[in-house]
């Protein structure tokens, strides 16, 4: 079974937008790859004019939110860095128990790489010698903020289209539809990781599962 990978366009965002952006992208991917019965739920982003769809599975929502919180914690410790969040789908294959071998084997059949560049909020020069200048600065900040948000919304739309395209073009590798959501894993950078964040964890898991894909 091939493992299809999709690298999504990198998004530049501020820390306050992480939750919205990751929820939107992760749930959209999950919605495309949860082929068991779902009741779609429309959700509007808090800070962005973007509507995404959830599967309507509370457990999944909780899991996503927990991972996002962990990612935010990591970002706080590693500001202004590019990072990746990886959503992987896999099958589990039971292996015969043996020495130094796990009982189950993970066979990854699809991976989505969400590329983020979390930047600190733009700070405007505080010439602040007069209120007038301050007001101008506030206005400039507001308009600039709005422009940044619109740019981010546009980028998210592109990413969502990318997901749609990939999900429909690459579907022959999808396993048989189960009665529940596919096995999946959300990997985020950990504090012990290198620049590439999640890579150490991925390498460890790849070694454990014996899956023959290269990084």
């Amino acid at each position: 079974m091939n493992c299809e990978t999709c690298h999504l366009k990198e998004l530049e965002l501020e820390p306050t937008e992480i939750t919205d952006v990751l929820r939107c992208i992760l749930h959209t991917i999950f919605f495309h790859r949860t082929l068991s019965l779902v009741r779609p739920k429309d959700v509007d982003c808090d800070s962005l004019e973007v509507t995404y769809v959830q599967c309507g599975l509370p457990e999944l929502e909780k899991e996503v939110d927990e991972k996002i919180e962990q990612f935010i914690t990591w970002v706080e410790k590693h500001p202004n860095r590019r990072s990746q969040v990886c959503l992987s789908f896999f099958d589990e294959k039971h292996k015969h128990p043996g020495w130094f071998v796990n009982k189950t084997e993970r066979i990854y059949w699809e991976q989505w790489f969400i590329n983020l560049h979390v930047m600190s909020p733009k700070k405007y020069s505080k010439s602040n010698s007069s209120k007038k200048l301050t007001n101008i600065g506030v206005n400039a900040e507001t308009s600039s903020r709005r422009a940044t948000l619109e740019s981010l919304e546009s980028s998210i739309n592109e990413v969502l289209f990318q997901i749609i395209n990939f999900a429909n073009e690459k579907k022959d590798h999808i396993p048989s539809i189960p009665d529940r959501i596919f096995n999946h894993e959300i990997m985020i950078p950990s504090s012990s990781d290198s620049v590439f964040g999640w890579n150490t964890d991925v390498i460890r898991r790849v070694l454990n599962s014996g899956h023959p894909y290269s990084l």
């Binding site: 959209t28 919605f31 495309h32 082929l35 779609p40 429309d42 509507t51 995404y52 769809v53 739309n157 969502l160 289209f161 997901i163 749609i164 999900a167 429909n168 579907k171 022959d172 999808i174 048989s176 539809i177």
Partner: peptide, 21 residues
């Protein structure tokens, strides 16, 4: 048949997302 059905399932989910984009 299975491929067609799976493909339709995925496509309809994409359609559901697309109409909201």
């Amino acid at each position: 048949y299975r491929r067609a059905y799976t493909g339709s399932t995925v496509l309809l989910r994409s359609l559901y997302v697309l109409v909201r984009l």
